[in-house]
Nucleic acid binder design. Structure first.
Lengths: 168, 168
DNA sequence: TATTGACAGTTCTAAAATAGAACTTAAGGT
DNA sequence: ACCTTAAGTTCTATTTTAGAACTGTCAATA
């Protein structure tokens, strides 16, 4: 599968993966949320090659996640800052951080702690249902085809059959 | 940077990216949450090459995200099912789906809808603070070095200086 | 008995992406 | 004149990925 095919897929995971689903994009975004904005700063703090960094920044700008803002004329220089679309990636980054905190820390403990300015406490992010506010788990969620669905695949039907039989 | 170096980084994003930060791993996990469990079913529903699928499944098993369970003897065949560590990836998948739903849908609308069995309503996932329950935004969060932090980088110090000056 | 099909991979070559280093352009300071 | 900062671009070598074909086991069918 090509990257371009991914954006066209009738699946919100695939389309999002087309934007952020590679080794570097997520790390570039992490730096954005840590207020890094300039080419050489990204390069220094990530150790990414300049070639790839230029490529990834271009991609993120193309998808409307970052915006290029001039911060000086002569010579013209730009900063890369998050758009609203980019800021909306925050829950993805935070859930990634949290999973890493729970499952990938070494004996020294968490690399970072997060303080909620609103309540002034150290916190973890929790994903809840927009309707009832309860924390979400995979088992409590049922999936329905939406208006933009592809016709349901026989593979999934078969696998769900099997899963149901196994539950008995 | 090599993949192996990524797992060692003192950063929960980097370590998580080492597990799920490639084009295919997230899509394989999507299928897992849709109850796909067998090699040929993954292959058929994703269109991934068999070579890469074998490689990714091996990686996910190695990281403890999937477990290989025999479902028949003679010939011995295995299913890949999510461990608890794998099930804990659900908030990541859901936040990815949600971002795609908001920012990447075409005119036909969402490919999938989610029903919360507990309250029986269609919902969106919302990320909240574990302490006060308020929805989280990037601006309301302050970052502190934790016990496993690397010594703070001059690049970040400089960038945060600049960000503060720009705010005035 | 021979053949076909399901399943879970492995092996091969060609194409694409990435790493690592050097080079470019443009202006300001010493 | 020469050095520095900044934001890229260009080059070659290495690694990953795509795409297709092949292997090994067993069960069911002709």
């Amino acid at each position: 599968m090509k990257w371009d095919a991914l954006e066209e897929e009738p699946c919100s995971v695939a389309r999002t993966v087309a934007v952020i689903g590679d080794r570097w994009s997520l790390l570039v975004l992490r730096e954005c949320f840590l207020r890094i904005r300039r080419f050489d700063d990204f390069q220094a703090s990530l150790g990414i090659t300049r070639h790839l960094l230029a490529d990834r920044l271009k991609k993120l700008v193309r998808f409307g996640v970052l915006r290029k803002i001039p911060y000086q004329e002569a010579p013209k220089r730009y900063e890369y800052i998050l758009t609203q679309k980019g800021l909306d990636l925050y829950p993805i980054i935070m859930s990634i951080v949290h999973w890493g905190n729970v499952h990938m820390v070494d004996s020294r403990g968490r690399p970072m702690l997060h303080e909620h300015k609103t309540c002034k406490k150290m916190f973890d992010p929790v994903m809840v249902c927009s309707e009832c506010g309860e924390p979400l788990s995979a088992k409590a969620v049922h999936v329905h085809p939406g208006p933009g669905a592809r016709k349901s695949s026989p593979v999934h039907a078969k696998a769900q059959e099997r899963a149901k039989r196994a539950a008995d």
